[in-house]
């Protein structure tokens, strides 16, 4: 399966779900170290989400050209 708009959208939905689940874990966790890891995960998810949004826009633009 090649990189395409549909796959990227699906991946983005999964990333957003992961971010939400990690934020829930961070909120319910009493361990400081675990909280730190979950927060790092949320940052990674947010970075990937931003990258995928940018990538989808690029694909849209190349499609229009």
């Amino acid at each position: 399966m090649e990189e395409n708009k549909q796959n990227l959208k699906l991946l983005q939905v999964m990333i957003q779900e992961m971010e939400l689940a990690l934020s829930e874990k961070a909120m319910t966790s009493s361990d400081d170290h675990a909280q730190h890891i979950f927060h790092q995960g949320m940052i990674a998810a947010s970075d990937i989400n931003g990258f995928l949004s940018k990538r989808r826009k690029e694909l849209n633009r190349s499609f229009l050209l």
């Binding site: 990189e3 874990k25 675990a34 890891i37 790092q40 970075d47 990937i48």
Partner: peptide, 27 residues
Amino acid sequence: AKDPVLKMAYKEYSKRIDELITKAKPY
């Protein structure tokens, strides 16, 4: 990915998720 920059970006993000799995799994 054909573009080397894209290839590297995807590789980097996949590595970050892999590290996250390793670190988070014990919790």
